[in-house]
Design a protein around this nucleic acid. Sequence first.
DNA 1: AGAGTATCTGACGCACCGTCAGGCCGAGCC
DNA 2: GGCTCGGCCTGACGGTGCGTCAGATACTCT
Lengths: 222, 222
Amino acid sequence: MTDVVDAADEPRAADGRVPGRRGLATRQRLLECAAEMLRTTSYRDLKVVDIAREAGTSPATFYQYFPDVESAILILADDMVQAGVAQFAEAVTGTTWRGRSGYEAAEALADAMITFWADHLPVLRVVDLATDEGDGRFANVRTRLLNDLNNALATAAADQQRAGRGQPGLDPNAVAGVLVAMLAHVSAHRLGFEFWGVRTDDLRATMARIIFWSISGQKPPV
Amino acid sequence: MTDVVDAADEPRAADGRVPGRRGLATRQRLLECAAEMLRTTSYRDLKVVDIAREAGTSPATFYQYFPDVESAILILADDMVQAGVAQFAEAVTGTTWRGRSGYEAAEALADAMITFWADHLPVLRVVDLATDEGDGRFANVRTRLLNDLNNALATAAADQQRAGRGQPGLDPNAVAGVLVAMLAHVSAHRLGFEFWGVRTDDLRATMARIIFWSISGQKPPV
DNA sequence: AGAGTATCTGACGCACCGTCAGGCCGAGCC
DNA sequence: GGCTCGGCCTGACGGTGCGTCAGATACTCT
């Protein structure tokens, strides 16, 4: 049974073959080298030749497993999403947005985003870039990563409004969208902020307060 | 006098010559074609050959006036900044952040950003992209565009804190940075939000409320 | 009209891309 | 051990766009 299911997303070589043990090893080595080189090289300067050479193989071999460089990175991005997609929404759904514990949820969310971006910066940079360049495949990855969070925040905002709290008159989806945009953009440029003398702790606290107030409508506890 | 000053930033051709009337016309035509093509073509697919052909000239001519495509766009970006840089900070410095007029200042700021991005979307897209790719020249443009606003917001946040309002305990620079990041990112992706059914009016209102509360610490007037 | 300068361009070398046809290698059979 | 066959790899190639010349062309001024 599982064989049939797995077969659907088993990696294929260029000619449609399903690679064997040795082939998969090569494929994996190429992926690892690509990830490694992304850490030091800008995405735009990442040449197939270099990845292949780094992996001790030839450019033609690369094309046997991936149609292009972006497809390889897309696989790295997919793995990353699968590993971390759940945690953001969890921080939101597990609170009533009341009092100190509500504020701590907002802080946990800000922290989760900052940490996740710090852990996966090279790949996330490419995701953001390619998305902005109009690459639908990467836009899709980004959506899968942030959609649950967005929905959870929108639901929370709507719930709070119904309870006579929150931000009456504001579209919950707009609130959620703005907050997610803020979180993603600030997390992505954390190092830029540090360069200008803004400490990450302060960014986290600022975002946590904005999140808490935007959703609950209450002044955050000191 | 002005001649001497102007000479410093007069356009130079590849060989250091200062172009004459005809040359400047060609240069201008190339810039306009580049701007025009940016509207329909993604920045990465913008080939020198195409711009040149569109302008009715040859690729070699292009290189007489610009070292590469990005330098040409950089000039478009420079013009754009010079045209619009002042207005953002003005919206911030001209208010005491009190009552309805304070909130209207926040709304005016959000509106100015959204409008500016809508007016200059193609060029700003490239600025954001190139900045994220680590291009210092474009990062510099972006800084020149947003720095005054950032400083104005940071000053306002600090002033309000001293007046016993605002967000005590938060770094004013962090507050300003987060707000600017939010404004820039949401404005840049306005069309994406519309696509997902979030109206621009709601984005503006949401951001205005967040700005007003983050700076003044007061509940926005209904 | 002719000299002199500003402006333009065809043609080239370079770098990287993505694709073949053909060579290697190792597992299984005799 | 030697043979064979299929999975795996690669050298070499055509294509595209870049950026740079030397030389052709167009304007200006006398």
